[in-house]
């Protein structure tokens, strides 16, 4: 049995519902009065695609412009990008395209791209048509989903889709930087690494680093975030 660990970055204009979408998926909750993300938040979750465990390490970034300079920190080495816009806002749709340009310019390794139109519960105020969005998503080789984090519609599909994309990628490309492990060994590796942590505090690497440097399977660039 295989385990894939993928880094997912969530990008998009401020207020489109990036955090709400992630929280809907990870915690299955929704808050009307969530405050803007400051910097970025980190979530992790596990999915099963056929017999493969996919662990997603999700970086939910802040949409405000002043945090823009921080974004490379999160999309660098990402295996998948969730690019979110608000279907009731043309501005957010255009801003999202800016993110795609930045991604393609700065990230060389292959990436699973997923365009998400959020807030379909407000469909009566729709400004971006489904066709336009689909067409755009196709043009950049991304999948397209519409969802409502508020009403819990379609959010699960988005993350399923990303997980499947990562599984496909691990099978086809050679130059991806996905972390792939054989599960039989991963527990041992985990145990080793935590033992290491306990005794050898001088080591300042992260768990991910120490795992990847001794894991077999595909090689990993020794870098996190």
């Amino acid at each position: 049995m295989k385990t894939i660990v993928g880094k997912v970055v969530v990008l998009g204009h401020q207020g489109v519902g990036k955090t709400s979408t992630v929280i809907r998926y990870v915690e299955n909750s929704f808050s009307q009065h969530i405050t803007p993300t400051v910097g970025a938040s980190f979530f992790s979750c596990k999915l099963l695609v056929e017999d493969i465990t996919v662990k997603l390490q999700i970086w939910d970034t802040a949409g405000q412009e002043r945090f823009k300079a921080m974004a490379p920190m999160f999309y660098r080495n990402a295996n998948a990008a969730l690019i979110v816009f608000d279907i009731t806002s043309t501005v957010s749709f255009e801003s999202m395209q800016g993110w795609v340009v930045e991604l393609t310019r700065n990230v060389e390794s292959p990436m699973v791209l997923c365009v998400v139109g959020n807030k379909i519960d407000l469909a009566k105020n729709r400004e971006v048509s489904r066709d336009d969005a689909i067409q755009y998503a196709r043009s950049i080789g991304a999948t397209y989903h519409e969802c409502s984090a508020m009403h819990d519609q379609g959010v699960g599909l988005v993350f399923d889709d990303i997980a499947r994309g990562l599984v496909r990628m691990s099978g086809s490309h050679n130059d991806h930087n996905l972390k792939v492990y054989d599960t039989e060994n991963i527990d041992n590796i985990m145990a080793n690494s935590s033992e290491l942590e306990a005794t050898d505090t001088g080591k300042e690497e992260t768990v991910n680093l120490s795992i990847s440097s001794i894991a077999h399977g595909n090689t990993v660039k020794p870098k996190c975030c």
């Binding site: 969530i34 405050t35 993300t37 400051v38 970025a40 980190f42 921080m70």
Partner: peptide, 17 residues
């Protein structure tokens, strides 16, 4: 002030400049 005004910090670990 930042901590009190940012409910969002409660939801997950954050990395904040």
């Amino acid at each position: 002030n930042l901590v009190q005004a940012s409910e969002s910090l409660k939801t997950a670990e954050s990395w904040t400049p």
